[in-house]
Amino acid sequence: MKMNVSVKAGLSFGALMGLFFALLFGITNGQKEGISALVSGILLSLAGGLLSGVLFGLFMDIFVMIQTKKFEPLRSQMAAEYRVVFESGANHFINKESVGGWLFLTSESLFFKSHQFNIQNHELSIPMNAIKSVAPCKLLAFQTGLKIEKTDGKWEKFVVNDTKEWAAKINELLVKHEQKEYSMRT
């Protein structure tokens, strides 16, 4: 059974925060109270960190479900106007902010629209002929990034689930576009 991505992220976040607070609380308490306080402080901090991580993951699941429903009109509009190849929730990095929204791959472009809970709300459309390359990449410690190199030398980064599938589908369309352009030239 595949574990939910936000629960995985929540557990990872919770474990890291639990470890941080365990060390902080444990060392501080251990210096004052002795080894038993150190051990109990570490265990309580780890348990609290994991619990808060799971709650964070559940909160993120609820947020994603709400955003998926809110993007339904846009998804219907995109499907009516374009041949949508792939889509999912995504974050787009712009000026060091990870802007949340929805990413669409159509046969002609990669299109991102942010949701309302961002500082830098925006839309971004990258035509397929403006994409030079695409590859999954690590963001922080996780393989959740999608790095798009454009023909003008600029880069766009997204956080998506299934980075390998996104990259494969985009690369497949890039090959089709190259073949189409080649056949038009000959």
Rank of each mutant, 00 (worst) to 15 (best):
residue 134 V to G: 03
residue 119 I to F: 11
residue 124 L to N: 06
residue 121 N to P: 08
residue 157 K to I: 09
residue 25 F to Q: 09
residue 3 M to D: 03
residue 183 S to L: 13
residue 131 I to Y: 00
residue 147 K to W: 06
residue 99 V to C: 09
residue 87 E to W: 01
residue 183 S to V: 11
residue 139 L to S: 07
residue 9 A to K: 10
residue 16 L to W: 04
residue 22 A to I: 05
residue 52 S to G: 06
residue 101 G to M: 00
residue 67 Q to V: 05
residue 160 V to G: 06
residue 46 L to T: 03
residue 133 S to N: 15
residue 86 F to R: 14
residue 175 V to S: 01
residue 93 F to V: 09
residue 96 K to S: 14
residue 120 Q to L: 14
residue 21 F to G: 05
residue 82 Y to R: 15
residue 68 T to Q: 10
residue 98 S to W: 12
residue 96 K to C: 03
residue 68 T to M: 08
residue 37 A to D: 11
residue 155 W to L: 12
residue 119 I to C: 01
residue 172 E to I: 00
residue 23 L to V: 12
residue 105 L to I: 04
residue 75 R to S: 13
residue 23 L to H: 04
residue 47 A to I: 13
residue 52 S to N: 05
residue 48 G to F: 12
residue 160 V to F: 07
residue 176 K to D: 10
residue 17 M to E: 03
residue 143 Q to L: 10
residue 92 H to C: 10
residue 64 V to D: 14
residue 114 S to H: 08
residue 113 K to T: 14
residue 99 V to W: 05
residue 182 Y to A: 13
residue 108 E to Q: 15
residue 159 V to Q: 14
residue 41 G to T: 13
residue 6 S to V: 00
residue 126 I to A: 00
residue 125 S to E: 15
residue 146 L to N: 07
residue 171 N to C: 06
residue 81 E to A: 12
residue 7 V to S: 05
residue 56 F to C: 06
residue 122 H to S: 11
residue 121 N to V: 12
residue 58 L to K: 11
residue 137 C to F: 07
residue 172 E to C: 02
residue 98 S to G: 07
residue 186 T to C: 05
residue 177 H to S: 07
residue 95 N to L: 14
residue 146 L to P: 05
residue 127 P to C: 07
residue 29 N to S: 15
residue 99 V to F: 02
residue 78 M to E: 13
residue 180 K to G: 02
residue 113 K to Q: 15
residue 97 E to A: 11
residue 131 I to D: 00
residue 113 K to L: 07
residue 24 L to D: 02
residue 119 I to V: 13
residue 109 S to W: 02
residue 113 K to R: 14
residue 175 V to T: 12
residue 148 I to K: 01
residue 22 A to S: 15
residue 5 V to Q: 05
residue 24 L to A: 13
residue 136 P to W: 01
residue 53 G to L: 06
residue 119 I to W: 10
residue 56 F to I: 03
residue 125 S to H: 03
residue 123 E to W: 06
residue 180 K to D: 09
residue 35 I to D: 08
residue 71 F to K: 01
residue 148 I to M: 03
residue 156 E to G: 01
residue 57 G to E: 04
residue 161 N to H: 03
residue 113 K to W: 04
residue 139 L to H: 09
residue 54 V to W: 10
residue 77 Q to L: 12
residue 171 N to V: 00
residue 118 N to G: 08
residue 111 F to N: 06
residue 155 W to T: 15
residue 150 K to P: 02
residue 64 V to H: 10
residue 109 S to H: 14
residue 117 F to V: 08
residue 73 P to G: 09
residue 151 T to H: 04
residue 127 P to D: 10
residue 75 R to Y: 05
residue 141 A to V: 12
residue 158 F to P: 07
residue 72 E to P: 01
residue 33 E to H: 10
